[in-house]
Computed example of a mutant assay.
Amino acid sequence: MKVYIVKDYHEMSKKAASIIAVQAAMDPDSVLGLATGSTPVGAYEYLRKWSEEGTLDFSGIRTVNLDEYKGIAKESDQSYYHFMRENLFDHINVKEENTYIPDGEKEDIDAVCRDYEALIRKLGGVDLQLLGIGRNGHIGFNEPSETFPGECHCVDLAESTIEANKRFFESAEDVPRQAYTMGIGTIMNAKKILLLASGEDKAEAMYQTMCGPITPRVPASVLRLHRDVTIIADEAAMAKAGTR
């Protein structure tokens, strides 16, 4: 595990974008696992800038997103499909047919999860998986539980997750209560993992992830068992974990 402690969100974002850019340059047909939420937005801004300048080529890149709310239309401003188009896809030269996100509109939960797992396998797996971390240690939408879920599944969102995400909606009541997410097993099968953390509200989660027991009660803690994990976190997020 490689850990980089940086000054702030800006430095975290630039370093993360640089790592993703190197992956895309070294392997132009890479499969990138992408994340949503406020954490990766800064990194996506750098990737957009470099793509618009012509120094970064996404024409052969394939992408798979971690998750999507269940029961939300693609056209909704709060869907992760909309988020990815607004923050990245519409500004780089990635082919639309090479971008994949779980279908939140389908009602057949088993079919959505089965099809997404089959898609990832067909693509040859994820080369670099980008992750944020929730205040409760969740990665993707894998909430604290009694076991590590293996494959893509539909999850009931924890109240802390709903509270954290309500800023993207009119109110907490508007936040979907379920979401599709890659499982822990799928995430751990990625060849490389890049975890980002910023802000003092992530300090406890980072401490438990890096210094506590490996347990499904802190889903991100399992990353310590992966062969190639890079963590980039700012000083506020690492206030409790230090350099361990």
Results as ranks from 00 to 15, higher is better:
V3Q: 07
Y4H: 14
K7A: 13
Y9N: 15
H10T: 14
E11W: 00
S13D: 06
K14Y: 10
A16D: 03
A16W: 00
A17H: 02
S18M: 14
S18V: 12
Q23C: 04
Q23A: 05
A25H: 13
A25C: 12
M26D: 14
S30H: 01
L32K: 00
L34V: 12
P40L: 07
A43C: 03
Y46P: 08
K49F: 07
W50C: 04
W50Q: 06
S51L: 09
S51V: 05
E52K: 11
E52V: 12
G60I: 07
I61W: 00
I61L: 15
D67A: 06
I72T: 13
Q78S: 13
S79C: 02
Y80E: 05
F83N: 02
M84P: 10
R85F: 06
V94A: 10
E96L: 15
E97W: 08
N98E: 08
P102H: 06
E105R: 04
E107L: 14
A111P: 14
V112Y: 08
R114F: 10
Y116F: 12
E117K: 11
K122C: 10
K122E: 13
K122I: 03
G124D: 11
L128C: 01
L131G: 01
G137E: 03
H138A: 07
F141E: 04
E143P: 09
P144H: 09
S145A: 04
P149N: 15
P149S: 14
V155I: 12
D156T: 14
D156Y: 11
E159C: 05
E159Y: 02
I162E: 04
F168C: 08
S171W: 13
A172D: 06
A179Q: 02
A179W: 01
T181Q: 09
M182S: 00
M182C: 01
I184E: 04
I184T: 14
I187H: 00
M188S: 10
A190E: 03
K191D: 11
L194H: 02
S198H: 10
G199R: 04
E200S: 12
E200C: 04
D201Q: 09
D201W: 12
K202V: 05
E204W: 10
E204M: 13
E204K: 15
M206P: 10
M210L: 13
C211N: 14
R217C: 00
R217T: 07
P219G: 10
L223G: 08
L223W: 13
H226T: 06
H226M: 14
H226Q: 07
R227M: 11
I231W: 00
I232C: 13
A233W: 02
A236K: 15
K240P: 08
K240I: 06
G242T: 02
